[in-house]
Design a protein around this nucleic acid. Structure first.
Lengths: 344, 344
DNA sequence: AGCCTGTATGAGATCGGTCCCACATCGGCG
DNA sequence: CGCCGATGTGGGACCGATCTCATACAGGCT
């Protein structure tokens, strides 16, 4: 008598164990534990006691198999270390938890191949839904397939898919920013962008060009630097842009990593902001208010994206059957001290 | 003839469907798809074709139920928005992915109750293991239970549990930092800590006291400010500490949020760093090199923690049966410009 | 007494896989 | 010719839960 209890993993208690200990059937135990259907008070009490004694806690995997899905939502950011995405991940997490869902994060590192693998992985997990910041806008069949099987919300970067999306007004924001630089008397305005592979970069670049055109300034390709979104690459790009004979008087960077790199590079070149060079960055970041001078930026409503994404997702989970909703957030130009009026 | 195919969710294909289309049994289909056991080349080919045609992809949940566990590892950081944890999350993610595992992140927001709920949740998911930065060192029965059922690695904050852990030398780092301040001639050294609820805070405070004692300086309770780890609270605490009649000449903060708050507060009070007040912070952060002056800090080996945690976890998953390993990382004092020599 | 409704319970099917085992079939060999 | 091992296949149990359905009994009603 007495089961093998010593050594080895102490197999987790199941409903069966609880039911046996309580002297009832599995069905009754399940009813007592999940409180549904008819259960006698006496039986329920015995079941609760047994569950307590065995340290029973349900097996989500089994529940998920039976009921169809795990109470999980996936999030595929471009890079979890980017404060922009970290903030959104945090907000998503909070919003989901309030609805009894958990978040699983898998960062694509801005690598389309990795993103494909991750999305497939998540899909195989039978999640409720996914929130994705697509790393590329070419070849998104994996996302199309995912959208067909589950709720999908795209953030930051829109694609032509049949699903909800949340983006910010990249073009308008860039136009306004560059317009402001022009209004301050700048003509030679350099820009650092991530290249045309990223929708956001294309849109911001378009806004930059629009603003120039509106002011009758001819775009100068030699003022457009290209760099992947890391501090190191931005440093190189900045040095290249500002080493030429005819130095630009202003610099517009496309995200916070680049802004940091640019500041570092300008400092190392002995160029003072804003006396020698005016700096304006897309995306606000905590550092922007700690530098001297503080950095003028185009702020995105980071704090609202996560919550809205979850709201959209949950709407779909609750059966909302509407055509794809595309939400466009406006940006806000925050004037600080890094842009100087250029004496003509 | 013809099943209901139109409208509604297009139920996902299962092995059964694939087998039927290929004209073989479920068992054969499974063998072909997972390539194990004996399968005829002809049958295998038919199965592959059928799977392709139906867009079949396995159901991880069902697999997990049969095989015992999901290929997932959980991470419970104190706060995913904290760059320290974001960096670690990123490293864990990369390390896990290299081993075919996925990461599920659930932030405890430094709330012990929330942590308990999350850990229970993750456990119910039958994960392979968990990496946790405990929010509190009181009442960790939930972690003890988790450790009994799965691989568990504690990071940043150690507890007296039978599991592996990774911490940094908080006491030694604080001692060295405060020792340096003393060596620079400072006697009245203020400190802001998170309170004795957090192990790390207790250890750093102990190091602070040790350094004072070694220099024969009597600790002064009025120099010890208490504040939760947010920029806002740190601002308040700093203002309180520096409003008294006998102003401290140096400030030691316990993490990067606090350091930011302190800098903001000192700036608003018109106190210059390091002329009026020397500042030294625990935990290095990107902002530290952007300020003027740059901030002297005690750096933790953030870049190594994630990878090591995964290594330890995987060791256990592969059956390593050793007594709990406790890894202690040394810290490194990085001298920058925020500490001035005090003229006596 | 007979019947119905409300309450309480257990047997067994089911979710989508995996995998053990029994059952072919076939060629080779003594 | 009969036996054996290697190869290929299908049947069905199983993982841990949920949930439908059949059954059983109590009490109230006609």
């Amino acid at each position: 008598m007495g089961e093998a209890d010593e050594q080895g993993a102490p197999r987790r208690a199941t409903v069966k164990d609880v039911a046996a200990l309580a002297g009832v059937s599995r069905a009754t135990a399940a009813r007592a534990l999940n409180s549904y259907g008819y259960v006698g008070e006496e039986a329920a009490e015995k079941v609760r006691a047994a569950a307590e004694a065995l340290g029973y806690h349900g097996n989500r995997v089994a529940q998920a198999l039976r009921q169809g899905q795990l109470p999980l939502v996936g999030f595929v950011p471009g890079d979890i270390q980017n404060p922009f995405f970290a903030r959104i991940a945090h907000d998503i997490d909070v919003a989901l938890r309030a609805r009894g869902l958990s978040l699983i994060i898998a960062s694509s590192e801005e690598d389309p191949a990795q993103e494909r693998a991750l999305v497939g992985n998540l899909q195989a997990l039978n999640l409720r839904g996914m929130i994705v910041a697509p790393a590329s806008d070419a070849d998104n069949r994996h996302l199309a397939r995912a959208a067909a099987e589950m709720a999908l919300v795209l953030i930051d970067r829109d694609l032509d898919l049949a699903c909800d999306s949340i983006t910010v007004d990249n073009r308008g924001g860039a136009r306004e920013a560059v317009g402001w630089l022009i209004a301050q008397g700048h003509r030679r305005i350099a820009v650092i962008h991530e290249g045309p592979g990223l929708v956001t970069a294309r849109q911001r670049l378009a806004g930059y060009h629009e603003a120039l055109r509106a002011a009758g300034i001819a775009p100068d390709p030699s003022l457009e630097g290209l760099a992947p979104s890391t501090v190191e690459h931005a440093i190189d790009a900045t040095i290249r842009l500002f080493s030429g004979p005819q130095r630009p008087s202003a610099l517009f960077t496309f995200d916070s990593q680049m802004t940091k790199g640019a500041l570092l590079a300008l400092r190392s070149m002995g160029l003072a902001v804003p006396q020698d060079v005016s700096v304006l960055g897309f995306d606000d970041f905590d550092l922007a208010t700690f530098t001297d001078p503080q950095i003028t930026v185009v702020a995105q409503p980071v704090g609202q994206i996560g919550a809205l994404a979850v709201q959209m997702l949950v709407d779909r989970l609750q059966g909302l059957d509407a055509p794809p909703r595309r939400h466009l957030f406006p940006t806000r130009l925050i004037l600080r001290g890094s842009v100087a009026r250029k004496s003509v």
